[in-house]
């Protein structure tokens, strides 16, 4: 706007700031997963039809379209199935670049989710890397995936890609 005030040429641009406030609700199933984060653990759900374990679960098996009701507590250990190194700045970004985002397959889960990897140089990360979740300090735990600070290598040998190929 300042530019328009100083230069009295024709108006060619219009600034229209938009702000909308929402009150988002997680619903029953997601709240179960979120409660797990608040307690520092992963809670997944098993599909009654295909028996696969979803974490985080949105309340249904997307394939069978049935409600997933059985809860499954999952460990902190996981495998990096694949990953990328993010080196792109953008509006609203809250992590310093470069950073590694990986598809995380928790032991006992049947789907992956996106997680941050730290404690290893980007060039050393490989598919199959074994990692474990590092949670924020107990007093900072909350009902959000952000309670998982990051995943760090466990030091175990990498898993062969062929052993998790169905998750790629």
């Amino acid at each position: 706007m300042a530019a328009e005030e100083t230069a009295q040429g024709p108006v060619t641009m219009l600034s229209t700031p938009i702000r909308l406030d929402y009150n988002f609700t997680a619903g029953v199933a997601q709240s179960k997963s979120l409660r797990g984060y608040a307690e520092g653990r992963f809670i997944g759900q098993r599909c009654p039809v295909c028996k696969k374990v979803y974490v985080p679960s949105r309340g249904s098996c997307p394939k069978d379209a049935v409600a997933t009701t059985e809860e499954v507590v999952l460990p902190n250990t996981a495998t990096v199935t694949t990953f990328c190194v993010v080196n792109v700045p953008f509006a609203g970004q809250s992590i310093e670049i470069p950073y590694i985002t990986a598809s995380i397959l928790l032991d006992g889960a049947d789907i992956t989710f996106m997680g941050l990897i730290q404690g290893i140089a980007p060039e050393d990360v490989e598919m199959g890397l074994r990692v474990e979740a590092v949670w924020v300090p107990k007093e900072e735990l909350g009902p959000t995936l952000a309670s998982v600070k990051y995943f760090q290598p466990t030091g175990e040998p990498n898993r062969e890609v062929s052993t998790f190929a169905e998750h790629l």
């Binding site: 997601q30 996106m114 997680g115 959000t144 952000a146």
Partner: peptide, 25 residues
């Protein structure tokens, strides 16, 4: 494409952040 959604970790980095790991696979 990266509007942080409540309860999720702010990791999204546009479409490239989604597709690059698949490309690596």
């Amino acid at each position: 494409l990266s509007v942080p959604q409540p309860f999720s970790a702010p990791l999204l980095a546009g479409a490239g952040g989604y597709f690059a790991p698949i490309i690596r696979s």
